[in-house]
Design a binder for these strands. Sequence first.
DNA 1: TTCAATGTTGCATCCGGATGCAGCCTGATG
DNA 2: CATCAGGCTGCATCCGGATGCAACATTGAA
Lengths: 346, 346
Amino acid sequence: MTDDSADESDAGRRAPLTGRELAKALGISQSTISRAFSEGATISPKMRAKVLEAARELGYQPNVIARSLTTRRSGIVGIVTANMTNPFYVSILQPLARRLQQMGLQTLLFSVPSGQQIDSQLPLLLQYNVDAIVVMTGTISAEMARRWADAGRLVLPFSYTIPELDLPSVSCDNEAGGRAVAQHLVQMGHKRPAFVGGHPHSATSVARGRGFAQGLEELGVPLFGRLDTGEYTYEGGYAAALELGRTRPDAIFFADDIMALGGMDALRFGLGLSVPQDISVVGFDNIPLAGWPTYELTTFAQPVEPMIEAAVRLLTRRDGEAVTAEHSALLPGTLVQRKSVRARGR
Amino acid sequence: MTDDSADESDAGRRAPLTGRELAKALGISQSTISRAFSEGATISPKMRAKVLEAARELGYQPNVIARSLTTRRSGIVGIVTANMTNPFYVSILQPLARRLQQMGLQTLLFSVPSGQQIDSQLPLLLQYNVDAIVVMTGTISAEMARRWADAGRLVLPFSYTIPELDLPSVSCDNEAGGRAVAQHLVQMGHKRPAFVGGHPHSATSVARGRGFAQGLEELGVPLFGRLDTGEYTYEGGYAAALELGRTRPDAIFFADDIMALGGMDALRFGLGLSVPQDISVVGFDNIPLAGWPTYELTTFAQPVEPMIEAAVRLLTRRDGEAVTAEHSALLPGTLVQRKSVRARGR
DNA sequence: TTCAATGTTGCATCCGGATGCAGCCTGATG
DNA sequence: CATCAGGCTGCATCCGGATGCAACATTGAA
């Protein structure tokens, strides 16, 4: 634009251009630069265009850190996760991160020991002016949740809920899913269906188990057996299936896919049973592995896409609108029938 | 401590305590607070203790954002990844993130479309004053790499290298791995070994393939077939195995495990072959799935732990010491023998 | 043509910590 | 007891943008 802009664009310069430098080059004030880059600021369209054009030319971009110092917003969303070995979480994490990126948000990954209270980690995240956190695991104290709400920060349990707190959450309708599985199994003629949960107190596991048990009860089939020691892992599912399998159920519903796969391997290799000839297996999540020919696992699919969209919508709300439990999204999933369930004659 | 500290600790306060507030409460200056929290600052041990104690009591923690504005360091490490569906990356990401956390560093997750140049994303990361980036995929232009080096930022290719650039990197000795696989297969009596790579130009795939080919050559066994269309995915491996399998090799070495698993399924379910009776399969990485009883995949294990330690060591270097390609860590892996390779008689 | 209302821009200051420099205090030395 | 060095602390200012308020420009109406 102006003449002395030339040396500013010198490729050799180290530090990135600051707003004041750009302002000087254009003969205007730093405030104007700032306004050109903020949405609703009072600035003439002509001036804004001029600034943006010059910025593009000279490679100026507002420094996010400095900005967040005053705005107290960072454009960063924290994601708290444990157990990333579970493919389901990965199949969430990847698209979620990418969607957030598209919306101009960054993703700060936070890995916590499985099942633990995450309170102790949160102040640290607050330090980074994280705008919101998506919690895929663990529990939060009411006290800490309140502190975050007070600070205008959204805490969003994803794919599970923390029943005691008034937090919005995004999850699949787990209870309906459990019920759907029960109906399917009964319809296919099963008489001795069993259930393997993740943890006895995990809200997710409890909901799926409850839906399953109620669905069976409604159809007059008793729950043949139950174990809550699957821990949402392959190994846990393997061990649980080994134990439960000896009692000869004719079907096992696992509260998630990775446990179901472990369970199938236990039934096949540990007990020498054949799935689905000797026993049917159903999972929950519909991770990619469930479709592999070795497993062909029938499973209740979580609506991953809609869940991510719902989360993104909540995360990109303008402040001011408080977001409470009423904004929760409880989305319906669908039963995906493959080959791990067989009709049993009677 | 002092009397008016009482109302500072009032649980109802919204914004976190600032250094100036804490200073006032203690009757000292903000500079002193700052010094108490920075490593090599000139401050008496007694004063530091007093400040830290009061800080703990009143819940003060220095604001990371403000700090990074002047220091130009943020304590954040960016991790650039594509293809998180590959369990290998997950098995790196999780422990790496946790280790970094232990060192007081945060992890900013950056997901880019697979195989793409990541240049366009990097300025954004620089905006966040990210201290370093760990690149698990993609390529960087020399220009951009230089810009980062100039800014005192470490760019660390992990588990692969970008041959043209003078960057340190952490990876497994892929060529040695390929050679070890060749030796094992020949020793087990294979005469028609084939190779499936990820991409024709991927440095990793090329190195593994070269080691394999050279190893075979040294032992006087010709490479029976080769395909570089595996794309590091299950589906790619499946397709490649289908194609290659028809030519009847007696063993296939896949450049990574996930392709190998796809390949095994293709051989078994697509071609009706039995592994290892009809054909042997070897992978690379040693992901958890490789040990599952359905697969029992023989594979060359990457030394994940040492690789992560090496990365953390490079990432936590004090500045000033330039880190160049000479600091690269090329770590040895080990062949894990399971049941997907069978000795072939004459 | 004049005055007011509206629209733009600049000035000054703030966000929370880091840091160069000056001033103070301590203790050791002569 | 005086003096000087070295160790600590406080003061002032900076990092890069955001923003309330005042000043100025523009436009339209009277």
